[in-house]
Amino acid sequence: MNEYKEIQSGSKPFKRAYVALMLWFVGRAIEAAARVDAAVKAEFDGLSPGFTFSLGVMPQGPTMIVGKDDQGLVRYRGWDPEGQKIDLKMKVKNLEGAILMFTFQESTAMASARNRLIVDGEVPAACAIVRVLDIVEVYLLPKLIAKLAVKRYPDWSFGEKIRNRIRIYGGAIFGL
């Protein structure tokens, strides 16, 4: 039967690389935001000691891991879940779903409404992390885009927003 063939599913190296870069960036930005923004710090303080969560793509990554260390400081813990105790796993069902999220075509709220995310872990912690992600997005993105990404754009003072934004970008890119 010449109408028949078997296909190995290919890979999408560029999309993977893009999502991996974004995850790296967001992970480090969360670490920086926990130092800079009181609300983000408060959210993490409310979570159990050593709390660690991952955000990744099914079936095989990329992934980023963020957790609290012994002193309660929030740390970006890299991309490899191997050997880490993870309390909350947020998984995007496939790479294209992650692309929609990280090109800001779909907000976190829309992605969960469209069932593109699987959350494995305690729900209150997941709620806290979603609020953290929303705040970080507002810092990282220009207002025009961030307004699409979050349900309600916060009414922070302009000066404070810019100051924190610079510090978070600095932290995410240069580890300052």
Binding site: E3, E6, I7, Q8, S9, K12, N94
Partner: peptide, 28 residues
Amino acid sequence: PGLSARGMEKVMASAFGDSNLTIGVFAG
């Protein structure tokens, strides 16, 4: 065969991209 000629196999292969799965296609 008609849908295959319209490139549907490629669409499917791309949809399974990055999934690590093997898929069979019979287009007859």
